[in-house]
Design a protein around this nucleic acid. Structure first.
Lengths: 232, 232
DNA sequence: AGTTGATTGAAACAGCCGTTTGAAACGCGT
DNA sequence: ACGCGTTTCAAACGGCTGTTTCAATCAACT
């Protein structure tokens, strides 16, 4: 016979909806994002996802068709939420380009490494970057390319037109790469750098200052990195 | 039950080196490295590995115990082979530090992106870097840390003692990050940069020149990057 | 109330996974 | 020839996977 427990659950969900009262679809997407981010596509199981979402295993097929389409939807969902949560800084027109560069780098690092947001969204997107699947193109076009274009525009302003676009893109990738390393290979970085040094010099704000100074110095727009006097 | 080291090791190191006729143990390690590199630990199956190695499925348990130990052994095997194949450049003592930096970067890029060697070894090591497992620590200590130390020594020579070690490490990571991006996120880079530009400006030699110039300029040891005359 | 269509539930499906088994095949000193 | 330890083989083992089934349940409308 039918259990009575599920019926009481449904009644509590109907009126108040205080606990986890979202769409089942939404709950599945949330749980799927976390599971896929943590374990990857292959290792994550729809059973674990449904267990965490509090729905039946059949629900994922009912709402999304199969695992692959659920994955793609969860990537979309994560990067849309991320774009909404951490938008690009909106600078007043008078902001110096150097300051924009620093803000951009700090924003990127905070988005990648910061603890302001739950980390699974970035981890999920990082998996797509490292090993692209069908969901990658959309992620690049909607999220990464616009950010990259802003960075290139800032660099163009800094160079005052003296650098052609291809070279600007190369410099932009150099800047992104410096931040990317800490996100993708953070564990190895932590093994290469003493822990107290890691906390003192490799925190997001410190890194933002370093990367910005590095780039400005390379462009001849700031003092070179050996700040102390030379002892030749 | 314990794993078995092949009893016929004595003749295996002969000069001949026929193509597929090595130790079963060696064949399994080779096939496992390729499969793990391509699909990752979870998605790779021991059946596919044994099929490619031309051995029975029971062989992997006979020689290695289980899948996890086979994985760890294959990572060790890959990074030992890699260290043997592509050693660090041995510079004559008179070599200028700037030239050493360029050689180091070019060597790293060639190792990461070059087509001189089968790509699966680097891909396998990259997986360990991105998501460390038990095999990671050894990989860092034997392979990555020595390379990193060489880079830091070059930078120290360039800075002529004007930069403290922690800052040198940070600069070193900045240089590595620029190369790392192309290896780990190469697909996304290819989507952000027009294809003809990618071939012309983002090949390993071009990148080595760019990264070196970028770093030297940041250190005040070379011309800043806007090389063309300004047009504003 | 009765009907309809959307949603949920427990159970089962076929298939692949890593691993184990027990016996056959091998190499080799005697 | 024999015996013996090492290596290979086909087959099977639970167990877990994604997916499907179909009846039960729900909300809404007539």
């Amino acid at each position: 016979m039918s259990t009575v427990r599920s019926q009481s659950d449904r009644q509590s969900n109907c009126q108040s909806g205080p606990r986890v009262a979202e769409d089942p679809r939404e709950r599945i997407l949330l749980a799927a994002g976390q599971e896929f981010a943590e374990h990857g596509y292959e290792a994550a199981t729809v059973r674990d996802i449904c267990l965490e979402a509090g729905v039946n295993v059949a629900a994922v097929n009912y709402y999304f068709g199969d695992k692959r389409r659920l994955y793609i939807e969860s990537v979309k969902h994560a990067h849309e939420a991320r774009a909404r949560q951490v938008p690009l800084p909106a600078w007043p027109p008078s902001t110096p380009a150097a300051e924009r560069l620093h803000d951009f780098v700090a924003n990127m690092l905070e988005r990648m490494l910061g603890f302001g947001q739950p980390p699974w969204q970035v981890r999920l997107m990082m998996r797509e970057v490292l090993q692209p699947t069908d969901a990658c193109r959309e992620l690049v076009e909607d999220y990464i390319r616009p950010h990259f274009a802003v960075l290139v525009a800032i660099l163009d302003e800094l160079a005052e037109g003296a650098i052609a676009d291809p070279e600007l893109r190369r410099i932009g990738l150099s800047i992104i790469g410096q931040c990317f390393l800490y996100r993708a290979a953070g564990d190895v970085v932590a093994m290469l750098v003493p822990s107290e040094e890691l906390a003192a010099l490799h925190s997001p704000p410190q890194l933002a200052a370093h990367v910005t100074r590095f780039a400005l110095a390379a462009l001849g727009l700031g003092p070179p990195l050996p700040l102390k006097e030379r002892r030749r």
